[in-house]
Design a protein around this nucleic acid. Structure first.
Lengths: 219, 219
DNA sequence: AGTAGTTTGTGAAAGTCTTCACAAATTATT
DNA sequence: AATAATTTGTGAAGACTTTCACAAACTACT
């Protein structure tokens, strides 16, 4: 039994499929805004994002009304609204565990900072990596993770360690009060209900591509 | 009204959602096989993969019958079968375009080789990177990509360049006969119908995590 | 050899997501 | 000021995905 929330606040369960498309819309709106385009219709934006106009409008309807009949959406306004929905109007602090090739690539990616995601510290258990400077941060000994989390409030922990170590790292992140985990290790983490895990799996993605390639070849 | 294809060959359209789960099953079966476990039931494997037993059985039913009533599946047999479905029984050759942080991380990832995906060459347009050795390969000047593809048969091209250059790279890959593109650039590529694009977007993934974090906080 | 206990494969039911289609609201034009 | 042309937001229809439930087929035990 769902009801409209009282004022402004969204409280109904938004389908995950919808959420996954919001960043896409956000990115396209940013490009449009940058190009000085002030208004955009659902069909225009939908074409850029590769979805149908109806889907775009339906997706947005989960969060309220942002457009005007006969006119469309004000580019900047809609971008800001989606930004607020995604929580991009606040800063988010992150730590990275694992300074291997992938971890270093993530640390050096500049796109996060632009969206107000700030990497605060990097940890690794490999003595050869501890002490190295990666993206302006000195890699710290992994055993200091819990201590660090005790003194700093961190919202997101990034796990870029081998699968065998991942669960132990996740446990320490959770114990340290981290509520979101971005997991690049190839296993399903078990965490308490109030912790959100976003799983990224590059191998699965590549295997999916391989299958579609095979399928296409036969057809 | 659907019909079984004549012999062995699968010709019905398998839902993308099913395909995305196959690598997950494959990985779990590999672990089981490594642990010396010879038989596994749908409920056992489903628990490991985080899906329901019914879904697992339904997914497999798209490709044929692999188990035995009252017994379950032979671990190794099912793993091999899924491997064949995914095309892992053949080698796949890849080239990487973009030797930045992400590109180098991908090149150094050892998991691909184990699945018979072989990186054959790396290209970049940055003179500072050309000539460097990454994962036993010398980074080549990007302008040589077309020439290289003319002399080597490559199935998959990996795009790890900035968004502005991605479409041009994709065009050259397609012209060179590449049929699958693994795209890490933040835009939707336009390619001919017979080319498959697998899109990976780390920023979108992080923003999705951010939203779920916000949502959880309010609930 | 017979019986009890498992477990698959599958059609049908339930649930979720996407597309359709149109009233209502607004802009643009005459 | 009135009319034509847009375009949103949304309930309902349609498509797709997941779960249920059970007959059929096999294993394992007596």
């Amino acid at each position: 039994m769902k009801k409209k929330p009282a004022a402004g606040q969204t409280a109904k369960p938004v389908p995950l499929a919808v959420i996954k498309r919001l960043p896409l819309y956000y990115a396209r709106l940013a490009s449009l805004a940058e190009a000085g385009i002030l208004r955009v219709s659902s069909s225009h934006l939908a074409r850029l994002a590769g979805v149908t106009p109806a889907q775009l409008r339906h997706d947005l309807s989960h969060f309220g009304s942002f457009g005007q009949q006969g006119y469309g959406y004000r580019t900047h306004e809609l971008q800001a609204a989606i930004g607020r929905i995604l929580g991009l109007d606040r800063s988010t602090r992150m730590v990275l565990v694992g300074a291997g090739h992938l971890g270093r690539a993530l640390a050096n990616y500049q796109g996060f900072r632009r969206r107000r995601f700030f990497l605060q510290a990097i940890f690794d258990s490999d003595p050869a990596l501890v002490g190295q400077v990666v993206a302006d941060l000195t890699v710290q000994e992994a055993s200091q993770l819990s201590d660090y989390l005790g003194h700093h409030r961190i919202e997101i922990g990034i796990i870029a360690v081998p699968a065998e170590e991942a669960q132990a790292v996740a446990d320490r992140l959770v114990a340290g009060g981290v509520k979101g985990i971005w997991n690049f290790a190839h296993l399903r983490l078990s965490v308490p209900d109030d912790v959100v895990v976003e799983q990224v799996n590059l191998t699965d993605s590549l295997l999916t591509l391989a299958f579609r390639l095979e399928e296409r070849k036969k057809a």
